[in-house]
Amino acid sequence: MSVITKDVLEHLLWLSKLSVSEEEKERILTQLNSVLEYFSILDELEIEDVEPMYHVAGLVNVFREDEVEPSLSQEEVLKNAPKTENGFIKTPRMM
């Protein structure tokens, strides 16, 4: 049983801004479906009375005070950017 159809895959690729070849799509489709199938084992568990857990560490109310700390220099910030212009990071046109 396939959960991920070709249409769903196309949509996911659009959301992730990825373009892949038709061959790869076939391969990814098979892999995604087998992963999801494996996870479907979890559907068999009875969890009606179990509180959802949102965080694994068991911590609560961890805060910092509103204090200013030094930032990076502009030079450091731009170091990893493929393209820059006047201190800005340059990206392809966005709509």
Partner: peptide, 28 residues
């Protein structure tokens, strides 16, 4: 009116500053 950002200590006083000068690894 906060002095620092939501999740890091970068200053909120960036309005007259050059671009990308009030950032740190967290907000980047």
């Amino acid at each position: 009116k906060l002095k620092s950002k939501m999740f890091c200590g970068c200053s909120t006083d960036y309005h007259d500053a050059p671009p990308n000068t009030h950032v740190c690894p967290v907000c980047l």
